[in-house]
């Protein structure tokens, strides 16, 4: 069996009660675990965008996306190819920072271009945004100092812009339109 890989779905939905439950239950029904999920209203507040990252084979995913389309409140679905998408995520974490290690932690925050947003007696709370892999790396490094609490937002994504000869950006998002 081929290794499952990340798929990023960008789902435009009506901004209504219960829509998230409808969307997520289509994954749950098949036992697909949602790896990360981010929801917020778009610039048009009648609509929200749900960014879903799932690890599944392409074929069953195609069936799920077709069924997502059938939800009355789903307006549009696009699949983003991770290779041609800009993915970003944000994390805040509280880490142990006793006098002996505080300097090292601050140095790493600096290297990762994070920000210290709260300072306690022997702990720091740090904010870091960026590609998910960068957050993973930072999390690994902080583990040595003792992570007290950590929260990640789940990723949001947009297609990378291609430049045509005329310099006009062309969307790399693959709209999953109707078949036929």
């Amino acid at each position: 069996m081929a290794a499952p890989r990340h798929h990023i779905l960008s789902v435009l939905v009506e901004n209504k009660a219960g829509v998230l439950a409808r969307v997520s239950s289509l994954f749950a029904r098949r036992g697909f675990n949602i790896y990360s999920l981010a929801v917020a209203p778009t610039d048009d507040d009648r609509f929200s965008r749900i960014t879903i990252v799932v690890d599944v084979e392409s074929t069953p995913l195609e069936q799920v996306t077709k069924q997502l389309f059938k939800l009355i409140n789903v307006v549009k679905i696009s699949e983003l190819d991770p290779a041609s998408a800009v993915e970003r995520e944000m994390m805040i974490l509280t880490v142990k920072a006793e006098p002996g290690t505080r300097g090292q932690v601050i140095e790493l925050v600096d290297v990762f271009q994070g920000r210290i947003v709260d300072v306690g007696h022997d702990e720091l709370t740090i904010e870091l945004a960026g590609p998910p892999s960068k957050l993973d790396d930072f999390e690994d490094l902080m583990r040595a100092y003792g992570i007290v609490a950590l929260q990640r937002t789940g990723r949001v994504a947009l297609p990378k812009l291609e430049r045509t000869a005329h310099g006009l950006p062309k969307s790399g998002m693959r709209p999953l339109g109707k078949v036929g």
Partner: peptide, 13 residues
């Protein structure tokens, strides 16, 4: 559209 290819891939959907 979700029926097309669900069980058997059609040559002409």
């Amino acid at each position: 559209p979700a029926e097309l290819g669900k069980v058997r891939r059609p040559d002409v959907p």
